[in-house]
């Protein structure tokens, strides 16, 4: 845990920087109240109530991308510890190589499946 202490210190510095940014803006910037500033940007279309609502129905395609990302990220996470010990394990035979090849076959099948069914067609 000793090695992670500097990261904690860095975290504190980063927080101080961000807080400093906020404080400085609030101190140094003017505050002029104009009604137009209250509404969000709408390409020039004026909203008379200055209230917009962006809570649209969620597009399902983005969720699919996220779920497929999850699967392949877990696969990447499986590759990382394998890669760590792979080179040393070669002294003991081709076990890890065969294991990884079998694993990759399933990953590749999954990738092919995703492409066949066009699940990643976000537009």
């Amino acid at each position: 845990m000793e090695a992670f202490l500097p990261i904690g210190i860095l975290f504190l510095f980063a927080v101080m920087l961000c807080a400093g940014i906020y404080v400085l803006t609030n101190l140094l910037g003017p505050r002029i109240f104009q009604k137009n500033k209250l509404s969000t940007y709408e390409c020039g279309v004026q909203n008379p109530l200055f209230e917009t609502n962006a809570r649209l129905p969620f597009k399902f395609r983005f969720y699919l991308v996220a779920v497929i990302f999850l699967l392949f990220d877990v696969e990447g996470a499986f590759f990382l510890p394998w890669a760590l010990v792979y080179r040393e394990s070669l002294q003991l035979g081709a076990n890890l190589l065969i294991a990884m090849l079998v694993f990759s076959v399933f990953i590749i099948l999954g990738l092919i499946y995703v492409f066949q069914n066009n699940y990643l067609n976000v537009d």
């Binding site: 099948l109 092919i112 499946y113 066949q116």
Partner: peptide, 9 residues
């Protein structure tokens, strides 16, 4: 399973 996948694609 692998066979089915392959045939399917």
């Amino acid at each position: 399973l692998v066979v089915l996948f392959t045939v399917d694609s």
